[in-house]
Design a protein around this nucleic acid. Structure first.
Length: 123
RNA sequence: AAAAGUCGGCUGAUAAUUGCGCACCACAAUAUAUAACGGUGUGAGGAAAGUCCGGACAGCCAAAAUAGCAAGUUGCUUGGGAAAUCCAAGUACCCGUGAGGGUGAGGACAGUGCCACAGAAAAGUAGAAUGCUAAUUUGCAAUACUGCAAACAGCGAUUGUGCAACGGCGAGGUAAGAGCUCACCGCUGAUAUUGUGAAAUAUCAGGCAUGGUAAACCCCUGCUGGCUGCAAGUUUGAAUUUGCAAGAAGGUGCUAUUUCCGCUUUUUAUAAAGCUUGCAUAAAAAAACGCAAAAGACAGAUAAUUAUCUUAUUACAGAAUCCGGCUUAUACCCGACUUUCUGCC
RNA sequence: CGGGACGUAGCGCAGCUUGGUAGCGCACCUCGCUUGGGACGAGGGGGUCGCAGGUUCAAAUCCUGUCGUCCCGA
């Protein structure tokens, strides 16, 4: 689980992130990117969405969320967040392909996503 | 042995590293009630699910005894239970070779409806299609007995239709037949005995009068104030709207003390100051409580990785106001008792 | 979390109240009409009535359970 400062919570924040219309896809996830930061001290906030359309049962949806949180958490722990730091908010949305995957599969998929993000940043 | 039946148990453990929610404690900082770090404790289920019942709790409406009407609901008996489409033991019926299992188990002489097609007829002591008839009347043959034919009538046995045809079967009886009579069985009623009771057993009587359907309307019986559900509801709160008076203008998902983007005033410029206040009114953003005897939030914790043990990296599956039930979904393993149409000895 | 609807032919819908025959439009197939196509006319095929159990002589319809889809309440 992430620390409180790094969680995206309010409904307004979610809507504002979606409205920014900056999206990257991977095999398992969709990443919505918020606005660039204006203040470097403000923490980046991350939200996770797994809709009921992915799976009907809450257990399997929770499992996906937990794996996602764990990947992001370990990134913060190892200070490997340079690709993220410029944004106010991020939202990870799971696709159906994310079902029944192990931790390592999820981690690799997210690394691919973040590489795409870094390339976009350079451009 | 195999195949079954009934009743249960379990729903992984340990260690290491990295983490999260909540409660309490301590410390410092800002500053006077809070965030991070630290310590201690604690942290999903047998179904948490479906929301099918019953409550607690809350608000609104109605009303207080009692009675009636309406509405809803219950439906074999006894006991348990706050209550229940609840539980236990029994009764009756049904299913199974059996151990056992199942049951929405009052009433179809209170009334109404329906029973397609077929069939004469689908409930009205109905009807004569296929049929039966040595009675009665007439005709013919004949001494007569009798035979043949027709009429009037009798019949509900036979054939046929149908899920279902007005008790079943046998004997007597009769022109042919018929509970018309009798035995047995079924049904209905009464009495006696046993049992708390549902009922059971026995005896007697009736003479069949009562087709099915109430998960059709309904009737009877017992019970119940009704409706809405924690998005119930309670409290705090004063952003904002409108009007009046003064007035320069604010904006945003977050961070913003006017610190970011803008605006106004003053000033050559840097820069500085300011971006509301009071009264009345409308509406109700938001927060807390509700909501926790050791889970308990509000984008929502209970986790991730590795190793060892093990059947177990595994089935079904994630608390959201709280309890009592029911129903449904469930992998592997373990225990106890029981049965036999079956196979072998 | 609570409340409420709906599952019938490839698609969109009737029928369910009051149980016995599953029907309508578009689409599809065949034939006709046309030089050819469309339109039009005639004929035809296609449905475990979401699934399972029960009541009944008989269930799309009545009852119970279950699966799925959708809507409403901040």
């Amino acid at each position: 689980m992430l620390k409180k400062n790094n969680r995206l919570k309010s409904k307004k924040a979610f809507i504002a992130t979606y409205k920014n219309n900056n999206v990257i896809n991977s095999e398992m996830f969709i990443l919505h990117i918020g606005k660039n930061k204006t203040d470097k001290n403000c923490p980046t906030r991350v939200g996770f969405v797994v809709s009921k359309k992915v799976h009907k049962r809450a257990v399997k949806r929770n499992r996906i969320k937990r794996l996602l949180r764990e990947v992001i958490r370990l990134m913060y722990k190892s200070n490997d967040t340079s690709t993220i730091d410029n944004y106010q908010s991020l939202i990870f949305t799971a696709k159906k392909e994310a079902l029944e995957k192990t931790y390592h599969e999820v981690k690799n998929d997210i690394l691919i996503l973040l590489n795409k993000l870094a390339k976009k940043n350079i451009q």
